[in-house]
Design a protein around this nucleic acid. Structure first.
Length: 359
DNA sequence: AATGAAGGCAACCGCAGAAGG
DNA sequence: GCCTTCTGCGGTTGCCTTCAT
């Protein structure tokens, strides 16, 4: 099991390959095959170690190498295989004709890994990160909003209940006498705040029921706990803590002009999940069976926090009911899953930078 | 236009396992 | 069975390019 001495030899050239060296290596291998890499440099007239020649050939000169940007399909394949195989770049490369393990490794380290981290996923496990600080920016924004919400509630006699305050504002706006467009703006703001409030509640219930993770010891009714839950919501959506299913963000359906299309981007900024995606997510969460296989077959998808945006098809009589429905949608949900979660104002959210960022 | 930061990628390093003597 | 050599793999580094200030 001794180490190869070839690279320890002095006098051998290192560093970038020149076109002349490439030409020599290419010409020799095309004519004779690589044979023994150790003897190849001498036979080919190269002042390089065999290892360097092999690397140059396999990563650059090989004629079947596909160069250029990775396609969305390749990207998805890498994500999927990495969630299964981990850093087995050579194994992953066998599923991507024309791509080298080195190229895939670089692509992972420079693109995919960063994007997973940005989305709050652990790039190694493909599961939502549970560390608190990952969601700090969202938490700060949420804390600010919550303060504003509380102020609104106090002013309106809501007794400090933000949801009630939102409802009150909603009533005022919908009552017709609220002052026209200004009332509508207030209603939109109230809706957004309520939306966030629901996220807090939903996440808090998730944390409480999961009984694990960073915020597990905190009360769901405590404001801090809610924020901690929001951290979980921001980072892991409603994927239950302790889930053994790795989650890989993937291409999702986008509603564009009334049509649903598959976005070419694996990490869309503001994904709108199709009903199929939602069902897959519910299966992932144990609501409808399927488990890891469902994930694997489906290619994975963003967890159900994004489901909240897929509510354009249904209306509800009482907007506030949506909260409780959402809070239990991570698994309780009545038959048919959460795909039909009613929510009457999604169009307001998709354009909102904060919501977009949050999602 | 100059400069520093960040991103991207090719190449190197070192470990581990397989193969052969 | 042991030792040496060879090959493959994954992690890391360093250089070049691009972007932002």
């Amino acid at each position: 099991m001794g180490r190869s001495p070839c690279c320890d030899e002095s006098g051998l050239k290192k560093g970038p390959w020149t076109p002349e060296e490439d030409e020599k290596l290419l010409h020799y291998i095309q004519k004779n095959g690589h044979g023994s890499w150790r003897t190849l440099p001498r036979l080919a007239g190269l002042n390089r170690c065999g290892k360097s020649c092999r690397l140059r050939w396999t990563n650059y000169l090989r004629p079947d190498i596909k160069r250029g940007k990775f396609s969305q399909e390749e990207e998805q394949t890498i994500l999927h295989l990495h969630s299964i195989l981990g850093n087995k770049w050579s194994a992953i490369a066998t599923h991507l004709p024309g791509r080298t393990d080195n190229e895939i490794k670089n692509f992972w380290n420079t693109h995919l890994k960063k994007r997973l981290i940005q989305m709050g996923f652990d790039p190694m496990t493909h599961r939502p990160r549970t560390d608190f600080f990952a969601a700090l920016p969202q938490l700060i924004a949420l804390a600010t909003l919550r303060g504003q919400l509380a102020a609104t509630a106090c002013g309106g006699g809501g007794g400090g209940d933000p949801a009630a305050a939102a409802a009150q504002i909603m009533q005022g706006a919908g009552g017709g006498g609220g002052g026209g467009g200004g009332g509508a703006d207030v209603a939109i703001q109230a809706a957004k705040m309520q939306y966030l409030q629901c996220l807090l509640q939903s996440a808090a219930s998730t944390i409480a029921s999961a009984g694990s993770g960073g915020g597990a010891a905190m009360s769901a009714h405590d404001a801090d706990a809610a924020l901690a839950a929001a951290a979980a919501a921001a980072t892991c959506s409603s994927s239950p803590a302790g889930s053994s299913v790795p989650i890989t963000p993937t291409a999702v359906g986008h509603s564009v002009g009334g049509q649903t299309q598959t976005t070419p981007c694996a990490f869309s900024e503001a994904p709108v999940i199709t009903s199929d995606d939602v069902e897959a997510n519910l299966r992932l969460l144990g609501c409808g069976g399927g488990g890891a296989d469902a994930f694997a077959c489906h290619g994975g998808s963003l967890p159900p926090l994004a489901d909240l945006s897929d509510v354009t098809t249904t209306t509800m009589t009482n907007p506030l009911d949506w909260c409780s429905a959402t809070a239990s949608s991570s698994c309780g949900g009545g038959g048919g899953g959460g795909a039909s979660s009613p929510f009457p104002w999604p169009e307001f959210f998709h354009d909102d930078p904060f919501i977009t960022d949050f999602l």
